[in-house]
Design a protein around this nucleic acid. Structure first.
Lengths: 242, 242
DNA sequence: TATCCATTTAGACATACGTATAACTAACAG
DNA sequence: CTGTTAGTTATACGTATGTCTAAATGGATA
């Protein structure tokens, strides 16, 4: 036992059939249940691998989770970056068309969903991470995605000169919330649609998301609170916020 | 020990100072950590109440969670319903103005956030429930909210005759995702805004959410996949919606 | 005062968890 | 054949969890 790295006790090759089996099973389990409600024993069993190997290859549950996360998030970030670069090039130096921007952001997620059960599970996991109060997982997400997010925010700002910096950030957040909900397959859409739409139809979800989000960005900027005539009071009588 | 109700072992009054202390502490703990990562012992300690009392009053962790959830969700649903009724009345039989509809839906949440730490914690908990894979919790949410959600969907359909039934449901989902993200205080906005906006400023978040969502609903309906000229291929250059 | 009963307490139960380790296997090197 | 080493196994440790129970408490009632 080297005292230096308690996490990875032995040499432990980076590639290995069993290591991959563990990663694949962990991805599904972490996505299906939450981080804490799925045990290493469940993962060991569903991957058909001995429990001790999880410790051998990854050292700890947390490190296993990180490995699961990093394996796919890199792909997602690269793809998003590539599409943004391509859209910029197509725009020839000018502002990137709004819908292109939105599509560049969302498309890599959709591609991944269609790629198979594992990648699809990762997307579920990834959306859940946003609300799950796991500090280490949030740090993971932050360090993986912050920089590409900034690049998109900058591009949105150029495309939408009518919006303040603050408004850009708010609407970017709204965009992420909207599209994640649409593809989250949380059972929500089933409940509400009464058969009118198929919640697993990711393409439809996205066809809906793009114009919805684009229109949202195009809406005029809101004045700051306190500035004359408070925006929200605009329409008079109706059931308004207090 | 009555064999009939293993869950509630004794008579156990519905009101009691300690019972309320437990509920309050559990609300905070469940919201701060996830359901499984906070133990009954944590709740007992932070409420200053003996562990055995949690079992005495609620019978099980799951039942305690349900009690926490039901205490506030009832308020939320009632308030949402009341605002919808009022908006309909104000509209005098005609379709309710779009922004009023959105406001009626969102306002009760904002009111609750401003009501104190407990109610605010409940909102965090409530948003998390949408992605957390806890079957029993999802059933809770469903049975509490489905009916008022249907009422809103019906109203949105009347206000937006340009949208198909499916589109209404998709956009309703997008709305929920957008506004929940905006108020979720998940640390996301901090990361991205670099000081441009204050993520705890719920009013600003909502001022942003309303026009964003309203514009999204107003965007033209999307044609179904397969119908001539595939929507998405229209990448052209236009920075415009639809 | 004696009785009663909702409430409260301390403590125990079985179980499951993440983690650790010592022993074993098989392949290859000298 | 011997020694080494990555991989694998079975098993154990300490701890924490949800649940449960038997006993104590204490104010109201008879």
């Amino acid at each position: 036992m080297k005292a230096t790295t308690p996490a990875k006790p032995a040499a432990a090759a980076v590639r290995s059939p069993n290591r991959d089996k563990i990663l694949d099973a962990a991805e599904i389990e972490f996505a299906t249940h939450s981080y804490e409600s799925c045990s290493l024993r469940m993962i060991a069993e569903s991957s058909g691998v001995n429990l001790g190997l999880l410790h051998y290859y990854f050292g700890s549950k947390q490190a296993l989770f990180a490995a699961v996360f990093l394996r796919r998030s890199a792909t997602l970030v690269e793809r998003r970056t590539a599409l943004l670069v391509e859209a910029k090039r197509a725009a020839g130096g000018g502002p990137v068309p709004l819908e292109d921007l939105i599509r560049s952001f969302i498309t890599p997620t959709i591609e991944m969903i269609k790629q198979g059960e594992g990648p699809k599970a990762f997307i579920r996991l990834h959306s859940r991470l946003r609300t799950e109060p796991l500090d280490f997982a949030r740090d993971l997400r932050r360090s993986a995605f912050n920089s590409v997010n900034f690049a998109f925010i900058k591009a949105f700002a150029e495309t939408c000169p009518h919006l303040s910096r603050a408004s850009i950030v708010w609407r970017f957040t709204a965009m992420v919330g909207a599209y994640l909900f649409l593809i989250s397959q949380s059972g929500r859409v089933e409940d509400l649609s009464e058969g009118a739409c198929d919640p697993s139809d990711v393409d439809s979800a996205i066809d809906q998301a793009i114009p919805f989000i684009a229109a949202g960005f195009l809406a005029p900027d809101v004045r700051k609170r306190g500035q004359r005539g408070a925006k929200k009071a605009a329409n008079g009588k109706a059931a308004l916020a207090g």
